[in-house]
Nucleic acid binder design. Structure first.
Lengths: 154, 154
DNA sequence: GGGCTATTGTTGCATATACAACAATATATG
DNA sequence: CATATATTGTTGTATATGCAACAATAGCCC
């Protein structure tokens, strides 16, 4: 490969490495998810599942598609994630009205679990805050909440 | 379930929903990754693979474990991701010294691909900047780069 | 009402991710 | 030098994620 081309390639790689937003949120995702997954492990629940459980309990009852809208999770992903949580006994899914939009809600077991999750979550939250610093932690909230409001518009 | 307990559960869920960092970076990850995946689709490469290719080209040559350190990706994940990229012909993996640390580098095809990726990446980058606003975009960079420097210390 | 379209959910397939266990090698320590 | 320990990489297993295609239903327009 020519010298000139090589330099172009290097410059392109450097530019992307120094600027890319996707690379950065993906890095943060891996790093923070591992913190939360680790503290939740004694309860055999993942960070992803805690997120879903929290959203379901907050909303009391809702359809899978509404939940997908709130969390911006694709319907097929949600379908299988919910199925795992149903098998674990944390949520109940009412598919009685055939074909109609299903309803999802937390079971008693799922609600009780959340109370055990809370102190573990607080620990992970603190670890994260220490890692990022409190100013940057606030920034994460601000950015994500803004993105969510923008995405929900559409 | 008792009324008092129900309230505790609701409060816990609200607190987590309003504060959780993991929920937020996971949301951003899904939202931004889909923007980049979409623009890269014509080249049959994913955002994750672009990240890896960029890191490899920037470093010129390095071992899988070094790459894992840079991107904070678990070694087993990396092993399989690299294998897919090798099969696609974008990287070369030298395992000649048996048992010793392997070396990874981009192939000519991989380097040429990066030049085609660049304009698509710029488009995704702009879309993201419009979605987040330029101040918040800067904040993402600041937070992730700080986290990376903290994590690299250890 | 009848047909067209949009919404909702599932399934097949592929990639991304990580833990645990393993194998092989490298390094340190006595 | 020999053994104990640490590093490196792969493989088995499981969850998380999304696209495409499909099925079923709901809603709309005439």
């Amino acid at each position: 490969m020519q010298q000139a081309l090589q330099q172009k390639v290097q410059k392109a790689a450097s530019a992307i490495a120094q600027e890319c937003f996707a690379m950065r949120v993906r890095y943060l995702n891996r790093s923070l998810t591992s913190i939360y997954d680790e503290v939740f492990r004694p309860l055999s629940i993942t960070a992803s599942q805690v997120n879903m459980l929290v959203a379901i309990i907050t909303q009391q009852t809702l359809s899978p598609s509404e939940l997908g809208g709130i969390l911006n999770i694709e319907k097929s992903t949600l379908s299988r994630n919910l199925d795992r949580m149903r098998k674990a006994g944390w949520v109940e899914i009412d598919s009685s009205q055939p074909g109609r939009s299903h309803t999802v809600q937390a079971s008693e077991k799922g609600q009780a679990l959340l109370l055990n999750i809370l102190p573990l979550w607080q620990k992970a939250q603190e670890t994260t805050c220490t890692l990022l610093g409190s100013e940057r932690s606030k920034a994460i909230r601000e950015v994500a909440d803004h993105a969510r409001s923008e995405i929900m518009k559409t």
